[in-house]
Amino acid sequence: MKKTKIDHYSDREALDFHNSNKAGKIEIISSKPMTSKRDLALAYSPGVAAPVREIAKNPDAAYDYTTKGNLVAVISNGSAILGMGNLGALASKPVMEGKAVLFKRFADIDAIDLEIDSSNANEIIKSIKNFSKSFGGINLEDIAAPDCFIIEEKLKEILDIPVFHDDQHGTAIITSAALINALDISKKNIKKINIVVNGAGASAMACTNLFKKSGVPNKNIKMIDRKGVIYRGRDNLNQWKSAHAIETKDRTLEQAIKGADVFLGLSTKGVLTKKMVKSMSKNPIIFACANPDPE
């Protein structure tokens, strides 16, 4: 099999990219011609009064006369940026702008990034609820667990537009698809494989849940957090981690990975050694997904 060359980018190159021409990655342009006095009068006063009246009579008319139906809010509080941790709302802006660009590039959906400077889940929920009328969908991003679960669940309950937490569901969808294909290539049965999930954040939880729904037995998945293997009887587990606790004598990654068929890394770089890989089963499947640097 021909090896694929891995591209590498320096910090300087990335910074220059973000600072070239206009700073950042997104801008707003008009979808209507703005070349004459008449165009301006229709776009703003007095012409804009007509759609205002229509929307006041029928809120659903906003989908006909505004960008609402094709506009997504990409939202973060910066509490779990990539794999770098809590660096604050403003520091998350390059990532959110990047996600907005992906929406436009691959689906022609317009998106605006909104960074909420708060670590209070209820405050974040209230903020999103109050400006949600302007959008056709909400994309949550880089919000630390367990707040991300609480925020998404509540927003789905109170809003009438789609709410999607990309770190959970986007990661779970592509990883599960990759697992299904890898199992087909390696001729392994999804009901008989053993999986080690290194990480216990939002993406790890969602991937594990989808793996189980896809046929992997609960007892065949070992999840590991900063303190080690999540096992039944371990103290101070929250409700989300408790759902993935299993009966096992393993306490470390090195112990848990012996004989495993699949390694899913969603934690930090450098944790997976050659010795650990050699201790796995024949033809192991490895998803080194730590971001920005893999395991």
Rank of each mutant, 00 (worst) to 15 (best):
M1G: 14
T4N: 14
K5V: 14
Y9Q: 10
R12E: 15
N21K: 15
K22A: 12
A23H: 13
G24D: 01
K25Q: 04
L40F: 02
A41H: 01
A41R: 11
E54C: 03
I55N: 08
P59T: 04
A62N: 12
T66R: 08
L71Y: 09
N77Q: 03
N86T: 10
S92Y: 04
M96P: 00
R105C: 03
F106T: 02
F106M: 13
D113A: 10
E115T: 13
D117I: 08
D117H: 07
S118D: 05
S119Q: 13
N122D: 15
K126L: 05
K133F: 13
F135A: 07
G137D: 09
I150N: 09
E152R: 04
K156I: 06
L159T: 02
I161A: 02
P162F: 11
A177I: 13
L179R: 05
N181K: 14
A182K: 08
S186V: 10
K187F: 10
K188Y: 09
K191C: 08
N194E: 14
I195Y: 03
N198C: 14
A202K: 03
T208R: 01
N209R: 11
K222M: 12
D235H: 04
D235T: 06
N236G: 03
L237N: 07
H244V: 11
T248A: 11
D250K: 13
Q255Y: 05
A256T: 00
G259S: 12
A260F: 01
D261C: 08
L264K: 00
L264G: 02
L266M: 15
T273K: 12
K274W: 06
K275W: 07
M276K: 02
K278M: 03
S281T: 00
I286D: 00
D293Q: 14
